[in-house]
Design a binder for these strands. Structure first.
Lengths: 243, 243
DNA sequence: CGCGCACTTGAAGGCGCTCAACATTGGTGG
DNA sequence: CCACCAATGTTGAGCGCCTTCAAGTGCGCG
C-alpha cells in the first residue's frame, strides 16, 4: 500500500535534501488509511497505542480535559502532522486527539517507525525534530494563554495557523479554509465562546480579518502579526515564509 | 574530566537498565562544568548554541518575554534536566533559560551527543524521550494556565515540583527546598505577584502548605493533589511515586 | 420545512489586575 | 555586631476584562 505523504516530505525537505533511498522509504511507508468524520476521537488519553497517526488531510485538535470537565486544546494538527508521534517513546498518551473536520488519517506502526529511525538516522533525527517543534509550539501557547489578552491571543493563533498552512501549501497568500468553530477557538485560547465571538467581531471591525463561512482572509498581514505579537521563529521553518 | 550525572542516569534507569557500556559512556561524558549565580541567563532566545546544558544542581527556569515585556516561565528545570536539549536539532533557541538559584551547570557539545545517539541508540531514544516528557509538561501547563483558577494553578505547580524533585531524590516524603520567589511563581502561573501572595496565604490558611524561608512542607498530600487536580500521569514516571 | 448547531446579543457580577504603600528578611560593609 | 539597603513579601481599595446566564438569530442539511 504505497501512499504519498507530500506534506510530511515537504517539511523534511525544507531542512535537508532527502536521498533517493530515504524518499523511497517514506513514500512506501506501510500505513493504514482511514477517513474519520468530524468531532471523533482518533486516540484517547490513557491509550497505549502501537501506532501513530499521520494527518493526511483535514483538521484535528490535541486536547486535555480538567477534572471539572473543561477542555483545553493544546494544539491544532494539520496535514503532515503526526500529533501523537510522542507515543513512539512514551507508553501512555497524556492527551486525546479529535478530528475537527473530516480527516484522512494514516496509521503507522511504531515498529516500522523505530526500524526506519535505526536504518535511516537522518529520518530519525527529522522525526525527533518534528516532536521538538511541537514542543516549541506548546511553549508559545503557554505564553499566549498566560500573558496575552483575548484579542491578542486570537490574533496570534490565527497567525500561527496561516503560517503553518502556507508551509504545507494549504493557504494561498493570505487566505485559507479554517473549519474551526468559535467554541473550538474558545477551548484553544482559554476563554469562553461568548468572548471569542466578541473578539472576532472587534477584529472584523478593525479590518484584521474577513470571513465567509469557513473561509478567512487577512487583508493586512502586518497588522495581524502586530496585533498578535506574532514572531514565527518558534515554528522553526527554515524557508522564511513570514512575508 | 569524567563527571557523575546521577540524576540523569537515575531517570534513564527508571525506564530500562543501562548496560555497563552505556553507563560508562554517560559517566565519562565530556562536559564543561560551571557554577552560575542566581538570576543569570544561561542561554538566550535567538542563540544558536553548539552545546546543551545539563543542570547538575540548583533551579533554573525556561521563559519567554512578550513584546510588551511580560515574562512567562514555561517550565522549571531541576537537577538531571537538560532544558535546551532541543537545540540538538533546532538551530535557534526559541526560549531563554535563567538560573533561579545558584546552579552547577554542565555544558555538553552537540557533537558528543549526536555521536552517542548514533553509537548507543537506546541512549538516543532515552534522550528523545526526555524531550517528549518536556513537551508533555508544556501541554499540561497550557491546560493549567488556560483552564484553572489561580488557586488550582498554584497547587498544581507545587504538586509537579514535589513529584519531580522526589523522582531525582531531592525531596523527602512531602517536604523540599523551593528557592522560587513569589514573583517567579507569578510569571509561571500567568498571574500577578500580588495575587500569588494572596493565594499562598489562603493555601496556608487551608492547611495545604507550611513554609519557612525556602523550605516547604505538604501536611496533606492528597488534599493538595485534589486542590490542583493533579494527576502525575503526564510526567511519565515509570516507577509510580505518586503516593 | 424544520431541526440542530453555530453564532450573536445583553446585563450583571466576580476573579484577578493596578497602583501604591508598608513590613520583613537577608545579606553586606563599616 | 550592628546599621543599612535592596529584594521579597504583605496589605488595601478601586477597577476592568472576561465570565455566567439566558435568550435570542441565522444557517446548513436531511
Amino acid at each position: 500500500m504505497p501512499l504519498c505523504i507530500p506534506a510530511l516530505i515537504r517539511k523534511m525537505e525544507s531542512v535537508f535534501t532527502l536521498t533517493e533511498d530515504e524518499r523511497q522509504v517514506l513514500e512506501t511507508l506501510p500505513m493504514q488509511v482511514m477517513v474519520i468524520k468530524d468531532d471523533q476521537d482518533i486516540v484517547r488519553m490513557g491509550d497505549r497505542p502501537s501506532r501513530s497517526c499521520l494527518i493526511l488531510s483535514g483538521f484535528a485538535a490535541t486536547y486535555k480535559v480538567t477534572a471539572g470537565g473543561k477542555r483545553q486544546i493544546v494544539s491544532f494538527a494539520i496535514a503532515g502532522d503526526i500529533p501523537d508521534l510522542q507515543s513512539l517513546h512514551l507508553k501512555t498518551l497524556d492527551t486525546s486527539i479529535a478530528t475537527i473536520s473530516t480527516c484522512r488519517v494514516g496509521f503507522i506502526q511504531h515498529e516500522a517507525l523505530r526500524d526506519i529511525c535505526l536504518r535511516y538516522p537522518r529520518i530519525g533525527a527529522a522525526l525527533w525534530r518534528e516532536t521538538l517543534i511541537d514542543a516549541a509550539i506548546f511553549r508559545e501557547w503557554v505564553m499566549n494563554v498566560g500573558q496575552r489578552e483575548a484579542y491578542q491571543r486570537m490574533a496570534h493563533v490565527l497567525c500561527e495557523l496561516l503560517v503553518r498552512l502556507r508551509a504545507v501549501g494549504l493557504a494561498e497568500d493570505h487566505a485559507c479554509d479554517l473549519p474551526i468553530t468559535q467554541a473550538e477557538f474558545a477551548d484553544a485560547l482559554g476563554i469562553t465562546t461568548v468572548h471569542v465571538n466578541r473578539v472576532l467581531q472587534q477584529m472584523r471591525a478593525d479590518g484584521l480579518i474577513v470571513s465567509k463561512g469557513t473561509q478567512i482572509k487577512i487583508p493586512d498581514w502586518d497588522k495581524l502579526k502586530q496585533a498578535g505579537e506574532f514572531d514565527p521563529a518558534y515554528l522553526h521553518l527554515e524557508s522564511d515564509q513570514a512575508a
